[in-house]
Amino acid sequence: MISEIFYMDGYGIYVWGSFAFTFLSFMSLYLVIKNQYEREKNKFIVKFGNLNSERAASARLQRINREILSNTSTI
């Protein structure tokens, strides 16, 4: 049964090859985008930390800034 699923009457290499390529593409895209996201977020946190108290308070008024800092978007 198991070997039949892998061999598929000789077509296994094509079928599993296609599914493996799709899986690798998904993983690569996910990791690239996640990496970009983390980089921008870390950049934001560093920049926010460098603001003086008055500017930080003004930036904190914006809801989106609070959302980014609250770490809710981590997956």
């Binding site: 996910y30 996201y37 950049k43 989106i64 980014i68």
Partner: peptide
């Protein structure tokens, strides 16, 4: 994920 990244870039 990409849209959120772009928004943070703008911020």
């Amino acid at each position: 994920m990409k849209y959120n990244t772009e928004l943070i870039k703008i911020k």
